[in-house]
Design a binder for these strands. Sequence first.
DNA 1: CAGTATCCTCTATGATACTG
DNA 2: CAGTATCATAGAGGATACTG
Lengths: 116, 116
Amino acid sequence: MIHSKPDVFDELCPSAFLPIRMDHKWAPLVLRLLEARPLRFSELHAVLHRTSAKELTRALRTLERDGFVVRAAAGRAVSYELTSLGRSLLGPLNAVYAWTAEHWDEILDARDPAET
Amino acid sequence: MIHSKPDVFDELCPSAFLPIRMDHKWAPLVLRLLEARPLRFSELHAVLHRTSAKELTRALRTLERDGFVVRAAAGRAVSYELTSLGRSLLGPLNAVYAWTAEHWDEILDARDPAET
DNA sequence: CAGTATCCTCTATGATACTG
DNA sequence: CAGTATCATAGAGGATACTG
């Protein structure tokens, strides 16, 4: 089907904020965690221990909804895996993280020049 | 000075969400608008007419705070201009936008497979 | 022109407790 | 293990009116 191509400026459609704002705080992190291999819910939660099960679930549901990950239930065990769409986002996403790692100090300095 | 390098995973520091979530909805768009040349407040608002002056102001204050733009008041006229830090973010940022333009349809399809 | 000031609502997210 | 259910709060963001 034909969805109208998002023109980020003219129409100010939601794509202007996607996936810059990935609809969930932990979504981008989950995506990166799944880069290496599929992970179980508990494995994800172990790393993202600062969030609740509820929020992690919501992050995963969001990622599922958008076609970034697929949920595979094998009996008791449930694991999450990247789709090709999800994997394709890792490039740009990691580019942003790389930028952040490189310029984080400058942002902090801009926020608080005193702390030198 | 030495700010500890952000390890996006180990400490789950705020950098994990920056600038993926740029602390303001309109911030990334403002950044892109300033790519070509400095713009006045009203020029920005003309394009971003869907938001209020209050929110646009807040976006600009956020961008200033983080060292992405500088505010230059020339008498009555006020214009905003990218700093080199702000400009350096355009690369990764535009990469994400490019990804979005290319995969937006797939996300919509994932959200609503019916609409074919 | 370039904002401020208010009011208001809705959502995101956390904390905590419970379940098949 | 892999979630749900509930409660509670801060802040995001819209609408609108006002100002030097």
